[in-house]
Design a protein around this nucleic acid. Sequence first.
DNA 1: CGTGTGTTTGATAGTATTCAATTAATGTGG
DNA 2: CCACATTAATTGAATACTATCAAACACACG
Lengths: 252, 252
Amino acid sequence: MADPTPIDLASLRRSCGHCSLRQLCLPADIGMADLARLDEVVRRKRPLRRDERLFHHGDALSSIYVARNGAFKTVSLSEAGDERVIGFHLPGELMGLDALAGGEHRCEAVALDPAEVCEVPVDDLAAVAAQLPGLQRQLMRVIGQSIARDQDHAEMLARRHANERIALFLHGLGERLTHIGQSSLQFRLAMSREDIASYLGLAIETVSRGFTRLQDDRVIAVSGRQVEVLDPAELLRLAHGGEPPQEQRRQA
Amino acid sequence: MADPTPIDLASLRRSCGHCSLRQLCLPADIGMADLARLDEVVRRKRPLRRDERLFHHGDALSSIYVARNGAFKTVSLSEAGDERVIGFHLPGELMGLDALAGGEHRCEAVALDPAEVCEVPVDDLAAVAAQLPGLQRQLMRVIGQSIARDQDHAEMLARRHANERIALFLHGLGERLTHIGQSSLQFRLAMSREDIASYLGLAIETVSRGFTRLQDDRVIAVSGRQVEVLDPAELLRLAHGGEPPQEQRRQA
DNA sequence: CGTGTGTTTGATAGTATTCAATTAATGTGG
DNA sequence: CCACATTAATTGAATACTATCAAACACACG
């Protein structure tokens, strides 16, 4: 079988030093000399197609990954075999840390779009980090960010009202988009309603109704996966448990 | 100001090598020579009283902590100032990683019981870990365990039915107790119903009713905070989404 | 023995889920 | 390029569940 997406060697070879994600990624705040050492261990995987998996449940931990282009979801598999979304990953964000404990991945990473990742073999990373205090520190920082995102997720899920979870989800996504230099007021959702529902612990219909409600209330404008935030302040207020406006919807 | 709970120097001085938690904690699987180096940086804090805080929201990250005796909860503070429980921590489990990203703690750690912790200054730990590959690896492992617990928490919260969350909570707690050598079939909850409710994203009454229901169904026997698991298999089945037994069929 | 906190129980209202059906978007082969 | 087939998303109505309010109860502590 011929590979329909041949590797672009030129782009794969570009070093961390020239990466647009440099500020967000492992290389943040480390010196030029250290950068060269890091470059030696960072590999780039060939592009992934939509729905392609970066690693599978049960795979032995070999590398951690940094999303480079495109978005990912990580899913855990239940007994029954159905998937539950436990995280979304934008460019610059880490994947694969779940295997640090047991040496095996507890979840699977799936590309939501055509995507690229940087792969960092853990053994190499550990060896280099031991020599470079700056990299060690930065590694801890990005791990911390991953932990912080997990806690944000838990905070969403702990909200009792579906609309709060949805507002928090959209708000949080906006913040992460800002962080990678994209607009937080106008964006395209890389994930399906089903993915969102799974991530938020809601039924898919509830997510759909939540979006509709936010649109009726003029907080967002949504068309399929395209989202525009019309009233960021209100979105934030709703995310933090503020009451939605009373029934005075206008007709079309 | 006289300290009402004087430090027991003898017990504080006991080294990691003699600690009963050795298998669970940072020292797991590292050699005797390395152990001595680790001992130099690990400090023990004076015992904490119930409700005493190990660190506060906004505190600068100085150390990470390992629960030694007693249980802890970590809580995040909402805008309104009310607390939300984001984790429970048993002996051998890490606390404080939330601050790795931003350098400030995003939550507070509260002792649920009279408790002791080991304190590991992050700077020292990083320095020693850089020299000791075994410690570095073990550090990654315990960080991974912490991440895995966060994901387990999210999985609980993502369950739609209150009883599933509760069953999963009790089952997970049992597993963690087994891990530290305690019975998973008979134990005392260190946390209040309110804490559990907050942790599970439920109303306190719903938690109480869930416990009652499990007792009525002969899955557990509960008296206040004392819990006995009568039917572990059924508890696991319920935790994984199994249907609770029907009220009473038309015919036996 | 009261008092306060924590827990349980009951009744009701509100919200999310489920089932069902429709509409919109996407992909495929002719 | 269009018609068709599939999948994704929305909408509606009825049911089931949880939150809320209210009150009783249990327990520890002074």
